[in-house]
Design a protein around this nucleic acid. Structure first.
Length: 638
RNA sequence: GCCGAUGUGGCUCAGGGGUAGAGCAGCUCACUCGUAAUGAGCAGGUCGUCGGUUCGAAUCCGACCAUCGGCUCCA
């Protein structure tokens, strides 16, 4: 007999060799019915796994994320089986579970169409009902190679060959379909109930653009139909938050064929930009930053010196002036270098925190452009901090705190990544290690959770990245802190130390918003276009009921305007319902309805965005209310 | 850049080898109105661009451009 410690802490004694499925049945029929897999000492196992010794055991159902993930993975096998049945000769790539679903990559002469997806989905449903068991078989490397070679599955052969020496190689079979897979899987295809094929997309084999592009079929899978419906509904809802749609509706910005990736900001979008910039300047001044502005076009020699010419050329735009090569800046740092060198610096001057709202241009691949989230010109809220080596940690922490402060003001949740040395980079291993450690130390000192993003650093240094989510949950890098030992070297930056000798400063590149454009996009999606009052392009719209109240309305407007409140009057000869509807559609935080009664009593009838009720109050009270809301940057949940 | 899809008035979309339609928005007129759309009328499009097929192309074909979803890349 062996002792199994269950999830609730209780211990169950069973015969050696009892499978997880038998264990589940011994616990309860319900559990046995819903079990998809198990976890033995933290390792995921099939239900058919026989227990040989004392262990911590957990039976997984679709109620857990892990259970769902296993089922999603199994669904990808089901997809592959259906595709193989309908399109014989299709070769298999990989097919993992992903958030909310799964995908499978295929190599096929046939190009999958949306109509094919429907057929495949039907076939999947048919196969699921067949109640095929997922059976696992451990095989030798030779056997696996022979099997896949014989079938011409060259991608699988490649995968097998790349498996480490000691790897246990297993194959899973359901019905007429067998795939290389580490598992585990649900016991039977009938556990797969609520799924939907979503789209086909090209995807390079192993994510490398030098490899062949395969066809990736994406699908959704949930525990039950209602969950799938819920998710599809949420997707539709999320699309209403899309900044591209809202940007047009709210008249914030536009994009045109004449300038793909070069956004046009409209008056209302400019209000947002300017508020973000004003807030930025104020907070940076408080923290000892100065601000500069450097040119957008600079001579080729500067970019050769900085290393951009060698390491960043594919992303840069060029021009000729008087027969000389010039570059449109993709980054602000070289300009900052020139500024630093305009005079002799003393250790007493450091750190120098030098900010710049700099417009940079980068040639992004046409297929990568995406609203304001990925553009070809954008304004970085950049700063370069020049400092003594002894100031590194404190300065990094200062920036981490600053970013955290900013994101909290907007109500953003974020996650942090540490990006390490990329392939095409410059500098010595020691310098990279030093810089990476310094960043990691600062993160640890702050007790922050972070994930490592190997090889994703800038070519001159590692970085801490701050990521925010868009309406569909895709994450975008915004803030970043990059520690750089290379530029000071390349530009021979120096300061005079206490000892009277020249020394090399260290520098940080950092942004908080990241790019104003991207940040505006994320703000728009975050608030679903209903900006908090302090950010709203129009804060108050006054709605006189008839033109008899126009005069009082104008008085109200002028008084608000004097208080720097962004206010408009809608004095069109429309019904009040119509005006209210428009104010709501345009997501103006406050609509002030003014009729005879309000004129009489010198009050305003306040209707807030998203609320049905109105509150009539003395005008002075309203001013106090809105001013407080603006000053405190209040975020209201709607 | 690559794979797939899409491209019809400012917006949303219908239509489809015989030469273009709706709703909203806009403009004009009437209505002076109390918390999410008053009514009537008018105007607006070389159907993404360029080629080809055809007696005839917005419709079929090709190339290109842009957009969308991915891949790759990145603030």
């Amino acid at each position: 007999m062996i002792n199994l410690t269950l999830k609730d802490g209780s211990v169950k004694q069973v015969a050696k060799g009892t499978t997880l499925e038998e264990l589940a049945r011994a616990i309860s029929q319900g559990l046995a019915r819903n079990a998809v897999a198990g976890k033995v000492n933290g390792e995921l196992k099939d239900l058919s796994f026989p227990l040989q010794e004392d262990a911590q055991v957990e039976i997984l159902t679709l109620d857990s994320e892990e259970g769902l993930e296993i089922m999603r993975h199994s669904t990808s096998h089901l997809l592959a089986q259906a595709v193989k049945n309908l399109f014989p000769g299709t070769l298999l790539g990989i097919g993992p579970a992903i958030a909310n679903g799964f995908y499978y990559d295929f190599d096929s002469e046939h190009v999958f169409t949306p109509e094919d997806l429907e057929k495949i989905e039907q076939e999947m449903k048919r196969l699921a009902k067949e109640d095929y068991q997922f059976t696992c078989r451990t095989v030798s490397r030779e056997e696996a190679l022979n099997y896949f070679q014989e079938k011409g599955e060259k991608y699988k052969v490649e995968l097998v060959n790349d498996l480490p020496e000691e790897a246990r190689i297993s194959m899973y079979t359901q019905g007429n379909f067998t795939d290389l897979c580490a598992g585990p899987h649900v016991p039977s295809t009938k556990m797969i109930k609520a799924f939907k094929l979503q789209s086909v997309a090209g995807a390079y084999w192993r994510g490398n653009e030098k490899n062949k592009m395969l066809q990736r079929i994406y699908g959704l899978a949930f525990a039950k139909a209602a969950d799938l419906e819920d998710y599809l509904f949420k997707l539709e809802e999320a699309k209403r938050r899309d900044h591209r749609k809202l940007g047009l509706e709210l008249d914030l910005f536009s994009l045109h064929d004449e300038g793909p990736g070069f956004p046009f900001f409209h008056p209302k979008g400019m209000v947002l930009r300017n508020i973000l910039e004003d807030f930025w300047r104020k907070e940076h001044q408080k923290r000892g930053y100065v601000e500069i502005k450097t040119p957008i076009i600079l001579h080729r020699s500067l970019w050769e010196q900085s290393g951009h010419w060698d390491h960043y050329k594919e992303n840069m735009y060029f021009t000729k002036i008087d027969d000389q090569d010039y570059c449109v800046k993709p980054m602000n740092c070289p300009g900052g270098m020139i500024m630093y060198k305009t005079k002799l610096r003393s250790y007493r001057d450091l750190p120098i925190r030098c900010g710049e709202l700099g417009l940079v241009h980068r040639h992004e691949l046409s297929g990568a452009l995406h609203g304001l989230l990925r553009v070809r010109n954008f304004t970085q809220d950049d700063a370069h901090i020049f400092m003594l080596p002894s100031q590194i940690k404190e300065e990094i922490i200062g920036v981490i705190d600053l970013v955290d402060y900013f994101y909290k003001v907007f109500g953003f949740e974020y996650h942090v990544e540490l990006s390490t040395r990329p392939e095409n980079s410059m500098g010595s291993d020691e310098a990279w290690e030093m810089a990476t450690n310094a960043l990691e130390d600062a993160l640890k000192a702050k007790g922050m959770d972070y994930k490592i993003n190997p090889g994703d650093g800038a070519f001159y240094g590692p970085k801490i990245d701050f990521h925010l989510k868009d309406c569909l949950g895709r994450t975008w890098q915004c803030g970043t802190i990059q520690l750089d030992f290379q530029m000071p070297e390349k530009f021979d930056l120096t300061y005079i130390g206490e000892d009277g000798e020249k020394h090399r400063p260290v520098m940080i590149h950092r942004v908080v918003y990241g790019s104003i454009e991207r940040f505006i996009a994320l703000l728009t999606e975050h608030y679903a276009g209903a900006f908090p009052t302090w950010l709203a392009p129009v804060q108050v719209r006054i709605l006189p009921i008839t033109d008899k109240q126009n005069e009082y309305a104008k008085q109200v407007r002028d008084l608000l305007s004097e208080q720097d409140i962004r206010v408009e009057i809608d004095d069109r000869r429309e019904k009040i319902n119509y005006k209210i509807r428009e104010a709501q559609t345009e997501k103006v935080p406050f609509a002030l309805v003014i009729g005879d009664k309000e004129v009489q009593e010198q009050t305003v009838a306040v209707r807030r965005y998203g609320e049905q009720k109105t509150e009539t109050m003395p005008f002075g009270d309203f001013v106090a209310l809105i001013k407080d809301e603006i000053l405190s940057k209040k975020i209201r949940q709607i």
